[in-house]
Write a protein that binds this DNA or RNA. Structure first.
Lengths: 324, 324
DNA sequence: GAACGATACTAGAACGCTCTAGTTATTATT
DNA sequence: AATAATAACTAGAGCGTTCTAGTATCGTTC
């Protein structure tokens, strides 16, 4: 299983290395006939261009690094799909890294992208501190998805508005509306503010409880909220909302009838009729698309303006929050 | 934002390139004092070693390529976690690619790994044909997870047994047991056989309906099965089982009471009390671990024996299949 | 005090590409 | 027919590392 290189193909095809390179990159400068000949020879030898060498040598080869925080949360799959729907992987390479529960892993994953010398990075769901994020943004072109940070290009949903929408929806039929928050999460502050403002605007008293990433914790914390009299719970994301549903059901109550539950993300999970979870749709797929478009723009134009895009979320009302 | 290289660090530190390289790789051959000095200089310059160059030049740097079929299916997140729990990312690099709905994308993703010259690839959930898979396995060290294929090293659950367990469980209280299959999926044949054998062994007539990846399709196909009198449905995976639950509920029946539903994968989804889905646990996390161990073994020993590991799945009985 | 062995370091080739600046062959222009 | 323009191709430097083979320097040992 000897490694075969461009040199081998060139020799076997009776042309120069450069010409083989030109053919494989699909750029102008080779006749159609010889290109086909080169490909034929290359194929018979089982030649696959060495991407590492290409990336080292090339200024033209563009690659986009993508960071996804958590593969267990379908939101990131949506965002990634959005990215891929915009990017032609023949033209631009994608390099993917993913986060890890361990705190401080974000930066390791970003470091890996820097080490790969990607031209832009699209980072979805970063939880590092603002100052650390700004440091990275200074070192490489960086587009933050889902997480806004001053001075950093980003594509986000208006979390504040989303939380307001959800809360205002609940306010119509409830008074004891609790918010199940996760401080470790990126949209934390804005969602919290949106909830709080909507509550006080309606003359209601906010009731916030903090939880973690784990569904089990969400369930336990929801139980606490229920026992302190909450008749509606707004969870920071769909996964947590699932935990809330668990708590509601195991307390012998019915979601949508006895207790209203609202999530955030509109993952396919919430869309499923069994759960029928009312949720805020941040348009994750579109977030990914916009981010990819910004990334492509940054590739094309060295000093493209650094913009921040904010999408307007939409409330998806389903039966988990029907009026009682 | 000038790119800074090992050369810059070497000059600034007053040592040779080689020594900087030695220091950063953490191998023997540099005094502790100078190493620290080099790091200090490197840090102040913002130096990050260029991984592309390293991969080109190095024979020692090992990297493992990982392919995951579908980010929307949490199974792959589990497998990936399993892989990472075994691999020290300081020692070995990971390169990740993911599949795409589009048929034939598997091979593109594997090609990308070959192009990156990874030393081994761990591929989870491949759906390509046996012959194509064998072709890849001949070109690179390849460990197939979740999908077995003769002549290819693999780590799989015993799908046949898993399906038998599920079916035999249902047989205890049901006669009209249907199987909702997905021919595009990797464990398709074995799960189907397991189901069929368990049925005929119990003197029952198999009832199979094929569906696709989409939850909506699963729901529609489940409706067909229900209307043809099925009192129990075994779905090829948890995602499809969710569709079945939808169909059951929208037909006005109750899962676990009127209709038994069983899935496959034991994703966190099925574990959630709201769904309480009986399912076959293939031990996805462990699948990933074993695959990673094989990969490391293949790295350490050039001609490590090519093994196939088969884990024994376990049935997780929950309320979706309680006896009626 | 010669020989040895570590230890700490360095020079320069090599890795497999791409890219610039040419060279040659072919076609178009006047 | 001479010249310009284009197309098809090539030689060789360069990308940023690692690796091999080596050179100093120092402390031991007999």
């Amino acid at each position: 299983m000897k490694k075969i290189t461009i040199e081998d193909v060139a020799k076997a095809a009776g042309v120069s290395r450069a010409l083989v390179s030109i053919a494989y990159r699909g750029v102008a400068g080779v006749s159609e006939a010889t290109a086909e000949h080169i490909f034929a020879v290359g194929k018979s030898l089982g030649y696959v261009p060495n991407l590492n060498a290409a990336r080292l040598a090339s200024k033209g080869l563009k690659t986009i690094g993508v960071f996804l925080q958590d593969l267990h949360n379908e939101v990131f799959a949506e965002i990634y799909d959005g990215i891929r729907s915009v990017i032609d992987e023949g033209e631009v390479q994608l390099v993917l890294t993913v986060g890890q529960a361990a705190a401080g892993h974000d930066s390791k994953a970003l470091d890996a992208l820097l080490a790969s010398r990607v031209d832009v990075v699209i980072a979805a769901g970063l939880t590092m501190s603002d100052s650390e994020l700004q440091k990275y943004a200074a070192r490489t072109k960086l587009i933050s998805v889902t997480r806004s940070c001053s001075g950093v290009a980003s594509v986000v949903a208006n979390d504040y508005l989303g939380a307001r929408l959800a809360t205002e929806h609940l306010v119509q039929h409830h008074k004891a509306i609790a918010f199940l928050a996760n401080p470790q999460t990126d949209g934390y502050r804005d969602r919290l503010r949106g909830y709080q403002d909507a509550m006080t605007d309606s003359g209601l008293k906010p009731l916030v409880r903090e939880t973690t990433y784990s569904r089990k914790d969400a369930e336990l914390d929801a139980e606490v909220l229920l026992s302190s009299g909450a008749s509606a719970i707004f969870a920071h994301n769909d996964l947590a909302a699932l935990g809330v549903l668990d708590a509601v059901i195991s307390s012998g109550r019915k979601p949508g009838l006895d207790v209203a539950v609202v999530g955030f993300d509109n993952t396919s999970l919430s869309q499923t009729p069994v759960l029928a979870l009312t949720t805020v749709d941040p348009h994750s797929h579109e977030l990914g698309q916009k981010a990819a478009e910004l990334a492509l723009a940054a590739l094309a134009d060295e000093n493209a303006p650094q913009v921040t895009i904010e999408l307007t979320p939409a409330l998806q009302v389903r039966s988990s929050s029907l009026s009682s």
